[in-house]
Amino acid sequence: MEQFVVSARKYRPQTFKDVVGQQAITNTLLNAIENNHLASALLFTGPRGVGKTTCARILARKINQPGYDDPFEDFAFNVFELDAASNNSVDDIRNLIDQVRIPPQTGQYKVYIIDEVHMLSSAAFNAFLKTLEEPPKHAIFILATTEKHKIIPTILSRCQIFDFKRITVKDAKEHLAEVAKSQGVAFEDDALHIIAQKADGAMRDALSIFDRVVSYCGNNLTRQAVTENLNVLDYETYTRVTDLILENNIPEVLLAYNEILAKGFDGHHFIAGLASHFRDVLVAKNPATLSLLEVGEQAQRLYFEQAKKASSEFLLKGIDLANDCDLKYKVSQNQRLLVELCLMQLCSVNFDGEKKKLIS
């Protein structure tokens, strides 16, 4: 039986064209290689799972093997990967500096990829300074980190810095669609959107979640199966609660909240999500801002329908009340009551408005 390979490894990009959501950086690196403008020390910084180490490996391969014609194994000895989290002492860096002096046996460059470089000790950083500034012609250093602020300024000043950005929901969703098609998995558009949103800008996390959900529901990814497996409150829940609020139906709103708590969801998560939902409905009121909704087509239609029922004044007041509850949640002695009070106030927004109209 063939061993299962996780999608994050199976679909790891092999060329710069395959890298998702980092076109500005990959184009810059390609141009630098073509024009012989590649710096001897590069710093790749950004959130986890966005392609820093992947780009470092592709770059190492590209500069030694421009046409990708020969087997990569011939140049594998030229690429050295060091995990700074477990090799962070002065002795580890001195051993690295001794290796750097030896030229490559095949190929043009020796590439040193130092992952989690912010974990190096101050003494190790200082031992590394001179070599980083004036390495031999055959050596290129690629440093990768998620925490640039922990790197000493003298190291930063010697590196060409590339800031990797979070991968957008749209880019992540499109890549997941390609992966699903290659595996023969049928999917609903909204299901992939939920996975992409849950990944929070990290492609590796998106692929890990995708594997988990496919294991749960087989070769047919539905929105319902994804929300059940990931235990997330989806837009349908918030749409139903908002409809009840617009109807001023306090008893049903409180029962709906009780049902949400019974399913194991946190009240803080719920109220923060409700504020985001009001924002999304407000965005859906204007066709010009519909593109700001990072949801599938079915969800867009639901938001658009609800936007017709809710006034801008109600939505702005709703965002304000939900956000205020969100801020007070952690310090509240009775968190359930706080959220319930917020929901009752939300139900009263339109009701108070009707009363004022009658009085006037």
Rank of each mutant, 00 (worst) to 15 (best):
M1W: 02
Q23I: 01
A24M: 04
L29N: 10
A32N: 09
I33M: 06
N36V: 03
H37W: 12
L38F: 09
A39H: 15
A39I: 06
P47S: 15
R48S: 14
V50M: 00
T54N: 07
T54Q: 05
L59Y: 04
N78P: 03
L96D: 06
V100P: 05
K110H: 02
Y112R: 14
E116F: 02
M119L: 08
L129C: 10
T131G: 09
L132H: 06
H138A: 11
E147F: 10
H149C: 03
H149R: 10
I151H: 11
I152W: 02
C159L: 08
A177N: 07
A180K: 09
A186F: 02
F187S: 06
K198W: 03
G201N: 05
L207I: 08
F210E: 01
D211C: 10
R212P: 00
Y216D: 07
C217Y: 00
G218P: 12
R223D: 01
T227C: 12
N231E: 06
R240L: 07
R240A: 14
T242W: 03
V253N: 02
L255V: 14
G273S: 10
L274W: 07
S276P: 01
S276K: 13
R279Y: 13
L290R: 14
L290Y: 02
E294T: 10
E294S: 07
L302S: 12
S311Y: 03
S312I: 13
D320K: 13
L321G: 00
L321Q: 05
L321M: 04
A322H: 05
V331C: 00
R336L: 12
L338K: 12
E340T: 11
C342S: 15
L346V: 08
C347L: 09
L358E: 15
S360Y: 08
S360Q: 10
